[in-house]
């Protein structure tokens, strides 16, 4: 099978039913995308597929065969993405484990809606769990990323 991750093609023998999450983590070694629940409940595994947020733990790899997958490793090659910058400015992460997924969701949100209200931020981000309780800072960081130009 051929998959395109972060702009790079990978040609690999794969079980087409394997979730994208495990292809990334265990086959390709892109471990920044996290396993949190495996059933689409926590958002830790969020990646962008053609620019849209997707839970990679419940997305079979055959579904992304002709699509572009972006993981957090591909977000900032030369420069820091404004969302990541806001995450640092607001000192969002604690343990950090949920944060790849939080950042990918936030990027997807701002792609769709560059000026979200607090209500829209909360509703879009409600699929991403953070057990350390960084939610107040996630809201601040998204507001900040939306304002930064």
């Amino acid at each position: 099978m051929k998959v395109n991750i972060n702009g790079q093609d990978y040609e690999q023998e794969l079980d087409p039913d394997m979730p994208v999450l495990w292809v990334l983590r265990d086959v390709l070694g892109l471990t920044a995308t996290k396993y949190g629940c495996g059933i689409g409940q926590c958002g830790a595994c969020t990646v962008l597929v053609d620019g849209q947020a997707m839970r990679s733990c419940t997305t079979k790899v055959r579904f992304v065969e002709d699509k572009q997958v972006q993981t957090i490793e591909g977000v900032s090659r030369e420069f820091l993405h404004p969302v990541q910058k806001a995450w640092i400015d607001e000192q969002v992460p604690q343990c950090g484990y949920c944060q790849s997924g939080q950042i990918m969701s936030a990027i997807a949100l701002l792609n769709e809606n560059p000026e979200p209200t607090d209500g829209e931020i909360k509703s879009f981000m409600s699929g991403n769990i953070c057990r350390c309780g960084t939610y107040p800072r996630i809201i601040k960081a998204i507001r900040k990323a939306a304002q930064n130009d």
Binding site: Q8, G51, V75, R77, H81, P114, Q147
Partner: peptide, 20 residues
């Protein structure tokens, strides 16, 4: 304020691929 296009563009430059 980022316009939608600029935002997508930035993501694209960073990530390569389609959005470029």
């Amino acid at each position: 304020m980022l316009t939608r296009r600029k935002f997508v563009q930035l993501t694209g430059v960073a990530g390569g691929g389609l959005v470029i």
